[in-house]
């Protein structure tokens, strides 16, 4: 399972990396920021709730963009600097280290939500009022956790591949689309919806929208339904990621490819 001490230490180390050189957050959140700002421009004619979609979705996009980008780079850098082997011979499980990093990266992705909120407030004059503040905070925390766990699932593969930069590019935009973060899921084609239903971020974004947009419940599951499904899918992905880490760590050790860059 997750070693809390190792996770906390990894989170702290990742945060120190950020504060030492904050410019590196730009490549991670520029895509979600521009995507959300373009969305604001496209939604501004319709106004009202559509603009709220963009602001809320921007938060989810930012958290995911930063998680997948920074997490893939962090393992890639360990590989390049030759520290991946050192991390793997410590008693702390690698999964806990990666989870701590993903948590920090998801949290930092909220910077995009802040940036989008400021653009929305000052450039578009949108008044963001949360109708259920407690529900919003709980949903935000659950979404953050769910995206960190999803980042962890993919992080497991970075242990056995040198091509982490290619993977993050492949994986970033599909989640933007399939999670339905900035539009209702119902506008996606029917065949793609099952993929959306298994992504925890879909339900997290749904819970965020329900707690903010009056009368919104596009999937008919209600706030607690969406929150429950976020937790359920997150737990499932956590189990998958732990299994993957055990299997792929073992494989990397047998192959002896940890420092191959």
């Amino acid at each position: 399972m997750i070693d809390l001490r190792a996770m906390k230490a990894a989170l702290k180390q990742q945060s120190i990396h950020f504060f030492v050189d904050p410019q590196w957050v730009i490549p991670s959140i520029i895509a979600p920021f521009i995507f959300t700002t373009v969305t604001l421009f496209l939604f501004r004619h319709a106004g009202g709730d559509l603009l709220l979609y963009a602001v809320l979705g921007g938060g989810v996009l930012g958290m995911w963009g930063n998680t997948i980008h920074s997490s893939s780079w962090s393992i890639g850098y360990d590989r390049m600097n030759g520290t991946l082997e050192a991390i793997m011979v410590t008693p702390a499980p690698l999964s806990s280290v990666v989870f701590g990093r993903c948590l920090w990266n998801s949290f930092l992705g909220l910077l995009n939500a802040l940036a989008v909120f400021l653009v929305a407030q000052f450039a578009f004059g949108i008044d963001v009022t949360v109708q259920n503040p407690v529900g919003f905070v709980v949903a935000l925390a659950a979404t953050l956790l769910s995206l960190s766990v999803l980042g962890m699932v993919f992080g497991a593969f970075y242990v056995v591949t040198r091509a982490s930069s290619a993977f993050f590019q492949i994986l970033e935009f599909p989640i933007y689309v399939l999670s339905g973060a900035v539009f209702p899921l119902m506008i996606l084609p029917e065949w793609s919806r099952p993929f959306s239903y298994i992504i925890p971020a879909t339900w997290g974004a749904e819970a965020l929208k329900i707690s903010t947009i009056p009368g919104y419940d596009s999937l008919g599951v209600g706030y607690f339904g969406a929150l429950g499904l976020t937790i359920l899918t997150t737990a499932a992905f956590l189990l998958i990621s732990l299994f993957l880490f055990t299997y792929l760590e073992g494989r990397a050790k047998v192959n002896g490819t940890l420092v191959r860059y």
Binding site: L50, Y176, F183
Partner: peptide
Amino acid sequence: LFQMWFFVLVSNFAGD
């Protein structure tokens, strides 16, 4: 494909 799809969906929903 996914970048294009994302913005097409947004545009579809915006109806501008």
